[in-house]
Amino acid sequence: MTTMLRSMLLVHARPRIARVFALLLALVGATACAQAGELPGDSVYRLDIPLVDQNGTGSHLADRRGRPQLISMFYTSCQYVCPLIIDTLRTTERSLDPAERQNLDVLVVSFDPERDTPVQLKNVFDKRKLDAGRWTLARTEAPNVRKFAAALDIRYRALADGEINHATALVLLDRDGRIVARSSTLGSADPDFVAAIRTTLAAHARSP
């Protein structure tokens, strides 16, 4: 990938500039490698889970490595708790300073891939006026939903009438995808959970 990028750039660059470019790319590459390192064994990013977001854009769960993540699960046809989950995620991140908040991404994955198409996710995204820079509503295929929920220990059961019974959990991942903290408080920001987010963000800021 890097090689490809480099050769693409070289086509248009003069030799001297090209050398500087190559050096820069090498440096960036080296930094990325140093930062990446071996994925911890208990990292949620050990899961191979493709995601599609509210814009229909595909990615992998493990692509989120590098920044702390606030994670939860929901389904959009839910009338009761799911609006509350988004409210709680929002309240939680609003209790952070704007500078802290900038380093936190929010990912909410649907329990219900059948009904939660990207269009449906986009509706909710727009209606709730979520921050497109940091928030992602995503779907993945049913077997992956099962594995993702299992890794986060979020229990749910689809019922015949279309409702999905589920435990509510907000989960904090550090930048390597390890579960640092969780909360099942709904409706308000859980102070212990917010404190854990702060600590994680501070550790991230110290050695970015």
Binding site: V81, A149, R155, R157, N165, H166, A167, T168
Partner: peptide, 9 residues
Amino acid sequence: GALLVASDS
């Protein structure tokens, strides 16, 4: 992981 989730949250 889906057994016995009885009352919804």
